[in-house]
Amino acid sequence: MSDDNIMGLFKKGQREKAFKALYRLYPRIEKLVLSKGGTKADASDVFQEALIILYRNLQKSDFQLTSSFYTYLYSVSRFVWNDTQKQFSKQELHDLESEQVAILDAVLEEQKYKFAELAFRELGERCQQLLQWFYIKKMTFKAIADLMQFKSEKVAKNQKYKCLQKAKDIYRTQIKTVQS
């Protein structure tokens, strides 16, 4: 499948299909990570992150993919891997081109979201479900209240707020422990 086709899939909202198509690039990324001393599991993680970062950027209106998917994923993967290894020499950072700076920014940004993800996963099952229904599936409080057997929409809304607050609390404490 050509890059244009994959781009088309993303535009049509068929994310999963697009990811599937992009996976054919995985063996080459795997080679990259392996050559830098990572394991196969590392490679799989790195590629996942790279896909997420690619997707996030495609969502941005001002983003233009100037190279092929492969080149882009390759450089993102490199940054992701180096970031996990904390291997950035000062010289290296100094020499970055503007495009690469953007990628590094995205990698670091995603790192924060990863913490938010972990905080979210700390929540109880019902809390997770509720938030996902509301924010990802965009379900109404009415439908959520029905499904979760809440007394009313109001209760569902209230619960949603509490769950969200809880996730934020967890996130804050996590960040604190990381920083200390």
């Binding site: 979201y113 938010a116 972990l118 905080a119 979210f120 938030l131 990802i136």
Partner: peptide
């Protein structure tokens, strides 16, 4: 938090 959730 939303982005984190989206990651899931």
């Amino acid at each position: 938090i939303l982005k984190g959730m989206e990651r899931v």
